[in-house]
Design a protein around this nucleic acid. Sequence first.
DNA 1: TAGATTGTTAATCGATTAACAATC
DNA 2: TAGATTGTTAATCGATTAACAATC
Lengths: 210, 210
Amino acid sequence: MTSQNISMSVINRLPRYYRFLNYLKLSGVTRISSRELSEKMGLTASQIRHDLNCFGGFGQQGYGYIVSELRDEIGKILGVDKQAKMILVGAGNMGQAVVTHLDFESRGFMITGIFDNSEDKIGKIINGIPVLDWQTVEEFCKEHTPEAAMICIPTSACKSVAEKLIGLGVNCFWNFSHYDIALHYPGTIVENVHLGDNLLTLSYRFRNNS
Amino acid sequence: MTSQNISMSVINRLPRYYRFLNYLKLSGVTRISSRELSEKMGLTASQIRHDLNCFGGFGQQGYGYIVSELRDEIGKILGVDKQAKMILVGAGNMGQAVVTHLDFESRGFMITGIFDNSEDKIGKIINGIPVLDWQTVEEFCKEHTPEAAMICIPTSACKSVAEKLIGLGVNCFWNFSHYDIALHYPGTIVENVHLGDNLLTLSYRFRNNS
DNA sequence: TAGATTGTTAATCGATTAACAATC
DNA sequence: TAGATTGTTAATCGATTAACAATC
């Protein structure tokens, strides 16, 4: 395993490499050089080679990279061949939409349970999975041992939910709330999706577009 | 206007500053030093002072920053006091959920039109706004002159949609598809929301958590 | 073999942190 | 005034780019 000391800058580029290579493969491209890929992706060839070599030498000198091979290697690095059990906490608009819209199975996760505390939602079926009462999460975790959680609840509720889940062995979070889990629980792995922040950034750029 | 040459690293932190200051204000905190704020946010005091001074001296030496004043200043920088007209293209799960879930008005934008090309969706009312036929977008834009668009359609449809909108004077995009608008149309302002990429990054970090 | 392109090291560039003089 | 904390410059650190030897 050559996975030590890889910077977040590099890691954050991997999914995009994976997407482009996937697209190239589907388009029937079998071979590509770092220069050609750099033109398609708007990066430098140097950066691509540098990034890839964090994980090993996937190319052939004088030839380039075999698209399907490189795609598979990056897929393996990202963990697309595995599926960690993930629960969704909060079955509101956003939670429902993301779970319905996105293919989790091809991205390393599998939704195995959905929880909410509202009478309206409990019992509802989302994407084939029934919404359970948040009160029963402890029981569920002890039986099914989920490893990750997608958090789609109001920020005010997140502290107690995170605390509870961490106590039940969940330490990987896909966090859509504004509560800063990573800051309060240093051992956890957290990716934040802050749509509001993203929209504000767009606003700034729109207003200051000189 | 002191908005020249601000790096994206700084810009991307602004919404988070704004959120924390807002929270502090609501909590009744009137005054804060860069050191106190740095502890609450998990940054260095030096970085906070450095970031803020890109836009002007908002503090008082020996005293710190007045919370509500700083909040308002950053809000103004982000453009929360203005509302650019934005249309939503694609009224599927994600588009509906985000428009319903998020308060656009307090983040510099206002949804003034929703478009789709599916019979099921056209005529439906989302958040008080009727879904219009995508075929009528040209007419709509000429009358209402939207300045921005939220793109929630399949990647395959994005190229033609982006082209059309750019032709109609829209050059600011909140892009949920995987089509790379910024790469293909260099003059545009684009913020991408790539949920799938984000989930893959989480998968990587989960698998390589040593 | 000659040409092409990688893998890898060195140079550059940019972002973060440290230090401290200015000043409230 | 003395103490505190900013604004700002200098030092450090990390990420990107350039260069080129290795090699297919």
